[in-house]
Design a protein around this nucleic acid. Structure first.
Lengths: 147, 147
DNA sequence: CTCTCTGCAAAGCATTTGCACATTG
DNA sequence: CAATGTGCAAATGCTTTGCAGAGAG
């Protein structure tokens, strides 16, 4: 894990932002789980700091995103946050909402080509692949109701 | 335009859904503008049917999406809707929020390969490329404030 | 005529924000 | 200490929903 203790903290310390115990806890929460909603992070952080408010979670996540320590991924109701370790994309099961991280380095060149065509600079690309995972596809085949 | 008058209407008529004047107006609004928010569609539809409610817009868009006549694209605050004519992706300027439709047929094979690796079926892929358009990049270079 | 739609208004979430107090560096 | 961060609670913005009457087929 790239962002263990010192690594993560250093990220914050190199900015004008302060390293509070709340922010440290949020970063720790992000190290464990992936694709966490703000709510989910709130619960985890509360385990050690019961008084933390959801507002603080959102404010901190916003800062971390601005710094580049955290990546957001929107799909369905709430936004999902994860530590920005490696560049990856998302494979989502439409039936059970499982989210799998997948690499796709080829995307960079496609995105760059498209960007160049339109004179865009400083580009980044995010891909979301939707479908049905093997388990859900199997259940559907057996007539068990799915969307 | 593929979905002119009869074409669009036929799409609805082939289902159990009724073709009301509200729905027809919404489809017409979608033919003109692209990347419209529900609010924007509401305004356009109101031009001919002043009494239409926003609730009806949302309910209709949801049906159209389910049928496959409309594609949704979430970026920033509100969801954006567009007629599902051709398969394309989005190039978004982070400074001025311009949204450009771009093709990227290569994505299909990448998505299929990824999906196969994870035994996913019935897949679809959506890519969003973010960056700065030429105009905004130029303004930034001249010291005019941008985000 | 029956079943589906619609307008209206209220409710539901996720997220943001103002403010007085607590904390960090 | 001065500047930044936090908790709380209220506010916001987008979207959904219940219901009684209107309209499509």
């Amino acid at each position: 894990m790239v962002t263990d203790g010192k690594g993560v903290d250093a990220g914050l310390l190199q900015t004008r932002y302060r390293l509070t115990k709340q922010r440290a806890a949020i970063l720790r929460a992000l190290e464990d789980g992936a694709h966490l909603t703000a709510e989910a992070i709130h619960e985890r952080v509360r385990a050690e700091l019961p008084a933390v408010s959801l507002g603080t979670i959102y404010r901190t996540l916003d800062i971390l995103r601005a710094i580049g320590l955290v990546q957001v991924f929107a799909h369905g109701g709430a936004a999902r946050y994860e530590a920005a370790l490696d560049k990856h994309h998302h494979l989502v099961c439409l039936a059970c909402s499982e989210i799998v991280n997948v690499p796709a380095p080829q995307l960079v060149s496609i995105a760059l080509a498209v960007a160049q065509d339109h004179r865009y600079s400083g580009v980044d690309a995010a891909m979301v692949i939707t479908g049905r995972c093997a388990r859900c596809a199997g259940l559907a085949r057996n007539g068990i109701g799915l969307t």
